[in-house]
Write a protein that binds this DNA or RNA. Sequence first.
DNA 1: CACGCGTGGTC
DNA 2: TGACCAAGCGT
Length: 362
Amino acid sequence: MKNLERVQQIMQNFDRELFRQNLIQWFRNEQRVLPWRENQDPYRVWVSEIMLQQTRVDTVIPYFNNFLTKFPTLEALAEADEQEVLKAWEGLGYYSRARNLQNAVREVVEEYQGVVPSEPEEIAKLKGVGPYTKGAILSIAYDKPIPAVDGNVMRVLSRILHVEEDIAKASTKKLFEELITELISHEDPSSFNQGLMELGALVCTPKSPSCLLCPIQEQCRAFEQGIEEELPVKSSKKKQKKAPYMLLLIQNEQGEVLIEQRPSSGLLASLWQYPMLPLGDVDRESAPHWFYGEYGLKIELKETKQTIKHVFSHLIWEMEVVTAEIIGGELDHERARFVTLDERNDYPFPVSHQKAHKYINS
DNA sequence: CACGCGTGGTC
DNA sequence: TGACCAAGCGT
């Protein structure tokens, strides 16, 4: 069935105006006080929407406040060093968000005179601004009636309208965008879009939704049939693969520790870490030889500390923490350097390697 | 379309 | 405790 046809089918006998009124009224009364809701500044809205991607509100709040203190304006962020931006993002995850945001902000400063574009075609070109973020910024900062379909919206609408399509599929997200286009309030698109998300966060939750408190209960097809817990339908993702490593803690005579910068693309791009060798490719016996080849330093393994387990969204690192002593050679590596423990604090480290900090003798 | 891309909370 | 998640995007 074509989407348009499916949209008509779903929307049949659904009172859109009643839905809009109840949703918007509820949002105006019940919305949480959040730092990015102080005003409609497009820059603040933008930063908040990027931080909120796949990330909880409670986690974002302190990062948002710190980020806006360090980079209060588009211009301030455009002029900052990338490493400084990554440091402000440290611990928040999905670090390409930070680098894309800064790239896009620089583009806005250079190409749009520092004004976040209000046209869908223009804002959509910016790095890191996808269909959801486009709709969120345009509706919240510029009051434009554009859909902003995220996981909350799909869950809420799949229940209210009884949609059984798999929300893990891109085609289903498009279906919801078309549904929202029919549903969205042109009087207050900001409260409408935010209301759907707020409802998903506070009432229409993934587990044990509070249907008795829901302003849309009378119109909810899933509640009517008692199947709210069965929706949305979402195909499961496969589990993470394990990757074993040896993490090396190496200090020179001055007590400085060896760290290196990760490549500028891929996992944890441009962040810093302790040298890490892939076990399996290399075993414990040949580790010093491998290390000499890679870094130009002759080392001797000393003490084996604990194994750090770190779970990513798609893989699991199991890092055996080992201290080593330098017995010769000279550091010869593009992206590695010795730093004092004080200096180390200025470098953005992924949480996986922050877990190794405590094994350094200070 | 499917996958790579982080982290911390929850049950 | 492992699985599942929480305001997605780029490729």
